[in-house]
Design a protein around this nucleic acid. Structure first.
Lengths: 213, 213
DNA sequence: TGACCGACCAACCAGTTGGTCGGTATTCGA
DNA sequence: TCGAATACCGACCAACTGGTTGGTCGGTCA
């Protein structure tokens, strides 16, 4: 019964968060107005504020959900594979897939990194701390096992996530530039198609991750 | 004479752009108000608009200057070194240095990538197109020469720039997480100090760039 | 001396911002 | 079936938004 009747409320909440996430992702916190979000979810200004007391609250909730999703994704990825190298491979692919799946989830995370340098200072616990710690430990394990190249784990992580996020982010710009290039259509780059592009990047990131063991 | 008396005007303009750049970098286009910028440069609202017709104009001017600087930096870097591999090394270091030098210049570029997907669609020529083209050609030359690993040049670029930009951007967050880690102070990561961190990343990026030739 | 200039400002504009408040329609458990 | 909670709205608010207006001021050139 609960499973049929009750979920309505949570469903609504999730739907609101979905739409808000899209808008925040596209325009950033200051780039969307409360009214715009409200309209997008078919509510009035006050109606939206009934669910989330404040614009800030809504934003934070979106981020919290995002972090939780990411945690779930890597949890599964890590459990799925038996070897450490396998876990890392699965993880890279999972993160890439996750960020492509809903258009530009990576963008919102980057926005958060941009906007909240000060918030990061203040925060006692970051929502993503668990995620980073897990990945870090995995990289260290891989290094001791000898399958992952030797370097500071955080540097490795910065490379992996940086490449993935930036690739997705810069693709439109790159594509535009590549298309305008008069030099001739050498081997045409996968940059024109998001899926092909991202999987090319994933392949390359893995090559980098496991090189020079 | 011109060199002593005249520069006043351009100096003022540059000073305005400097301050505006800082604010845009920190808070994004929508995150700063015209009035805030005006106050920061010691002008009234109208006084600022006397120099730049529009908030958008001011923002564009900031970006144009940024792109020009970057072009200059890589121009020098490329001329300085004799070999292709040397050029690439110098370039990576130069870009890293450039983005560290004035706090978070990379942030503004990332913001631009985030906010202007649609602007990118419309724009006939991107300010950074020259930069990307040059780098691309350099990577291709390196590949033919055999010093750069084989992969789509744009993918390689995405990895290089992605790692550099993301590393700088995520450092505060990483540092916070690393500091909170109870696991013990194993080999302490360079993440705590920006300069050491960035040079560690540069070293690693180069290793990746030139691996498996 | 007087015409003209760029730099700048106070006051103001219409429109938008995030948010409050009182009320109403609907849904729910008892 | 009733009372209470929930979901939502219209009207409203003060503060702020980017931008305009008319005008002041010091300097330059003729």
């Amino acid at each position: 019964m609960t499973s049929v009747l009750k979920p309505k409320r949570d469903d609504k909440r999730e739907a609101l968060l979905d739409r808000a996430e899209e808008l925040f992702t596209e325009h950033g916190f200051h780039g969307v107005s409360l009214a715009a979000i409200a309209q997008a979810v078919g509510l009035g200004n006050a109606g939206l504020l009934h669910h989330f007391a404040t614009k800030q609250t809504l934003y934070r909730e979106v981020l919290r959900r995002l972090a939780a999703e990411l945690d779930g994704v890597i949890g599964e990825a890590i459990e799925a594979a038996p070897t450490i190298r396998g876990k890392l491979e699965t993880l890279v692919r999972a993160v890439a897939a996750w960020s492509v799946q809903r258009a530009g989830r990576a963008r919102l995370m980057i926005r958060e990194l941009l906007d909240n340098v000060d918030r990061v200072e203040r925060a006692r616990t970051l929502p993503l701390a668990g995620f980073v710690d897990t990945c870090c430990a995995l990289v260290e394990a891989g290094q001791m096992e000898g399958t992952v190249r030797h370097a500071d784990p955080l540097v490795v992580l910065a490379q992996v996530f940086g490449a993935l996020a930036y690739a997705q982010l810069a693709r439109p710009t790159f594509a535009k530039i590549a298309a305008a290039k008069v030099g001739g259509p050498r081997g045409k780059s996968p940059v024109a198609d998001e899926r092909r592009w991202m999987s090319a990047v994933v392949v390359d990131v893995e090559r980098m991750l496991f090189a020079e063991v």
